[in-house]
């Protein structure tokens, strides 16, 4: 992407993406949206789409593009917001989110015309497919990377660890996973549902692990992504990014109930007001 991109410019894009998340989620009306996990992942997705990844909205199937896989597909609004801001999807299309006949389903559906690499959201599977895609790049001697956004709750899934073991065995150093550790999953806090030491687990299966203490701080997440992108460890890489569920909207932050629900007019107006005054 453009070399003139700065941390400040990514932060501005992140702010716009947060507004898009609220707009799309509000447009879905009673169908609701997964606000919490979209908002926690904004800085990660913005850093990837505006700085780290090589991609071209005018040529979505460009062979040398870096791949982005949103394995935690329920957080699709952060992905769609990035696709809008980078020009894959128009604003008119954005407002069709979850609508009858729309291509913007509540979990991503493969659509290369609009930059959606795979169908994901059945948890764990996107990450495992990303492993196959990284292997394919090795087979074809292509130099691009595969970036995969995974949820901390998603790491409950057994297939995450099947695929992680195979990633290490296959030396997929072109695969970079980012765990959006927002600490909240559907039914509660992750420490109450399944309290595990993610750092130890990823290390145990042979991955290079980097912890980002402030995953909603653009400078921090960007630094980690660039470090893993350039790592010569020969291992697959995982960034465990500590984030805040619902980041940026006070009443959604760290909230279990705002994992997914409809947004009413009053709450919408407050969310917009908070984001505009941030």
């Amino acid at each position: 992407m453009d070399k003139k991109i700065t941390i400040e410019s990514i932060e501005r894009e992140a702010a716009v993406m947060r507004r898009h998340v609220i707009e799309m989620g509000y447009a879905a009306g009673g169908r609701g949206a997964h606000f919490g996990p979209a908002l926690s992942s904004i800085e990660i997705v913005a850093s990837l789409f505006f700085k780290v990844m090589n991609h071209n909205p005018l040529e979505p199937t460009m062979t040398e593009r870096d791949r982005f896989i949103q394995s935690k597909g329920h957080a699709c609004l952060s992905y769609y917001a990035a696709l809008v801001e980078t020009g894959y999807i128009t604003k008119d299309q954005m407002y069709t989110f979850k609508g009858d006949g729309s291509f913007l389903s509540g979990h991503p559906s493969r659509n290369m015309r609009y930059g959606i690499e795979i169908s994901s959201g059945s948890l764990g599977n996107g990450f495992a497919i990303a492993g196959g895609m990284a292997k394919a790049a090795k087979i074809k001697k292509e130099k691009h990377k595969v970036y995969c956004l995974v949820g901390d709750g998603e790491c409950n899934e057994g297939i995450i660890w099947e695929a992680a073991m195979n990633g290490a065995k296959s030396k997929l150093d072109n695969l970079i996973a980012i765990v959006d550790r927002n600490g909240v999953q559907l039914a509660g806090k992750t420490k109450d549902i399944m309290d595990v030491d993610l750092e130890a687990l990823w290390k145990a299966v042979g991955w290079e692990v980097l912890i980002v203490k402030e995953g909603n701080d653009t400078a921090s997440i960007l630094k980690a992504l660039e470090k893993m992108k350039n790592s010569q460890s020969g291992k697959p890489h995982v960034i465990i990014a500590n984030t805040t569920k619902g980041k940026g909207v006070s009443f959604m932050e760290d909230s279990i109930s705002w994992h997914a629900r409809p947004l009413n007019k009053e709450d919408y107006e407050q969310a917009v007001s908070e984001l505009e005054n941030a």
């Binding site: 495992a128 990303a130 196959g132 394919a136 790049a137 695929a163």
Partner: peptide, 10 residues
């Protein structure tokens, strides 16, 4: 899934 990832890439 690994098979699918390979197939996605041709």
């Amino acid at each position: 899934d690994f098979t699918a990832g390979l197939a996605v890439e041709g």
